[in-house]
């Protein structure tokens, strides 16, 4: 009796190992490999150009983004925002972004001496950098966030478990939890618009042309031309994420 049970267990064990072997013998493919095998290579790579010298901090872009992408209007989270930098003669840098700059900027910054002489001041709009090597995609434990063939990083709201690892992994602080959907949320370059040939909501709302979106794989695209021919910079390149939002007139004080 005990011998036959032993045999049964042995056979069952080796049987189940044998049954699972063919599965494990398959090579693990990276998402990129799968994409290369299943899709033809995209001829689009979305990129963004921000001309900080043109931004006046009106906040129309933030308003437009919140309305277009249904991020609760008064919640203190936003897919895009505008920062104000005020550098005074004493060498101090005062940075603020009240409500993400949604309602524009009026008063001087609160921790700034009202009599201090301002040496320079400027605005810097921020949004997701749609990195070539996104840290957020790397850390997602369930693959709910992914990079599309044309370079935009998206979140699958039906699959995200809300662990917050991607929020912690992003060096730019662009991610947050959507107050209603309770999943990770981020700027998508208005993917629903750009994939239909429209501009993003923020680009369309900007009255000064400080924001532009273009196809970096198209050499004739005006955005690509500017990036190729002018002096542009990216934010925090030391993290190796290869950000794809390029800035004109970026200052050393910009964080």
């Amino acid at each position: 009796m005990s011998c036959s049970r032993r045999n049964f267990l042995k056979t069952a064990l080796s049987g189940s190992i044998a049954a699972s072997l063919p599965l494990t013998m398959f090579r693990f493919l990276s998402p990129a490999q799968v994409q290369a095998a299943t899709e033809s290579k995209s001829d689009t790579r979305w990129g963004f150009l921000v001309d900080t010298t043109k931004c006046v901090g009106c906040g129309f872009c933030v308003k437009a983004c919140k309305l277009e992408n249904e991020v609760p209007y008064d919640a203190p989270v936003t897919r895009t925002w505008v920062e104000r930098y005020v550098v005074t003669k004493d060498g101090k840098t005062h940075i603020d972004s009240p409500k993400g700059g949604r309602d524009g900027f009026v008063a001087r910054h609160e921790d700034e001496d009202p009599n201090a002489e301002i040496t320079k001041a400027f605005f810097v709009p921020k949004l997701c950098n749609q990195c070539e090597n996104p840290a957020c995609v790397q850390v997602c434990p369930v693959g709910a966030t992914f990079q599309t063939g044309d370079g935009v990083v998206l979140v699958d709201r039906t699959w995200c478990i809300g662990c917050g690892y991607c929020v912690m992994a992003c060096p730019y602080g662009v991610r947050f939890f959507h107050p209603e959907h309770k999943v990770a949320e981020k700027c998508t370059f208005c993917y629903h618009r750009i994939s239909k040939g429209m501009k993003t909501a923020c680009v369309q709302a900007c009255p000064f042309g400080a924001r532009e979106i273009g196809n970096l794989k198209d050499p004739n695209d005006p955005v690509t031309k500017t990036i190729m021919t002018e002096r542009v910079a990216v934010l925090k390149d030391e993290y190796g994420t290869k950000p794809q939002v390029f800035y004109i007139g970026l200052d050393t004080n910009v964080r």
Binding site: F28, V137, Q138, V139, C140, P141, V142, G143, W159, C160, I161, G162, C163, G164, Y165, F177, K182, V183
Partner: peptide
């Protein structure tokens, strides 16, 4: 208790993602 979507807690087991430490 921390997950925003605790009902999806088993997903990391179903869709292992080999680049994530949490997975």
């Amino acid at each position: 208790m921390h997950l925003q979507q605790p009902l999806r807690a088993m997903e990391p087991l179903f869709t292992p993602h080999f680049t994530s430490a949490i997975a």
